[in-house]
Design a binder for these strands. Structure first.
Lengths: 167, 167
DNA sequence: TATTGTTATACTCTATAACTATA
DNA sequence: TATAGTTATAGAGTATAACAATA
């Protein structure tokens, strides 16, 4: 069995590169969204999620699950965004406990206003130095990691851990 | 010239996979460090930076530059960590304006206490589904992105932007 | 009883600007 | 004048627990 106490240089390099690139990218993306539309990245994600289905409002819980928020955290963001006129809340007709959220025309406007700069930034910061083969390899490798993360949360490494949702 | 308004599916896949994996990884890492040593990821980075050179205290500004902090942000973290006994501050003998920071024995202890679980988590969450070739490809690709990010901040995408350091 | 969502609350973190002191 | 670091302050975000309403 492999020594489990250390990562060899190649493993460390992959880990550090990922952490540093994502940190820089996150930072850059956050600034762009803030400047071009006054949005945080999470607000952008929420808006983008709602913008995909302009006709179909989505449940709070579904949005929260998708974006790994605590419920109260999502309530906070949605409250801010509703104040800003980017989305609206309405009680569900199916289940009166549920709140359905949908992007307003203004929300879609802001999304459209922010999007070109966002795409441009991603292109310049992340994609510019990559070949098509690099991008494919990156999606493939990280896609596998993502599938693994979703399927198999690291219980044995953090046995005391419980997510906000399983109590 | 390529259409600059959209990312094709392959580009989007690479971008989204990176953002989601790093977000999940960041979350998992943060929890592990918090549980095993009461450290945030940034505090871990600071401590790890100081732990590399136990004999050579490092300047506040150098640490801040390396970890992309605002200076006041670093002062805040260092203050917290000094209260917790993880590091100490001392005026520099070379330059009386500077503050030199170094990890205390307790800081090194906490680092050692946190490290095995950290390595184990990274192995399980990030590295488990990857082959050696994947890791090499990942380091190579992201290493190039990192070099590109450091060398060439996205000015044209965010022309109004100034970093906290260039005023 | 379980689930949906909100609220109250407390905490962590970040950034800007003003400030002190040294170079 | 420029640089190093701190402080005051204000704001954004997060999480936990208690809660009301509905299933």
């Amino acid at each position: 069995m492999a020594d489990t106490s250390f990562l060899d240089p190649g493993q460390l390099a992959a880990y550090f590169a990922l952490m540093e690139v994502s940190s820089l990218l996150q930072h850059a993306v956050d600034q762009q969204l803030r400047e071009d539309g006054g949005l945080s990245y999470i607000q952008f994600q929420i808006l983008a999620t709602l913008g995909e289905t302009p006709d179909e409002p989505q449940r709070m819980t579904d949005v929260a699950d998708r974006l790994v928020h605590s419920r109260s955290g999502l309530t906070y963001q949605v409250t801010q965004m509703a104040k800003a006129g980017l989305l609206t809340r309405a009680p569900s007709s199916d289940d009166e406990r549920s709140t359905m959220v949908s992007a307003t025309p203004k929300g879609q406007e802001v999304l459209a206003q922010v999007f070109p700069g966002h795409v441009e930034l991603v292109r310049q910061v992340l994609l510019a130095p990559l070949t098509r083969a690099d991008m494919d390899a990156l999606s493939d490798i990280l896609g596998r990691v993502r599938a693994h993360m979703r399927a198999d949360p690291p219980r044995s490494a953090a046995p005391r851990r419980r997510s906000a949702h399983d109590r």
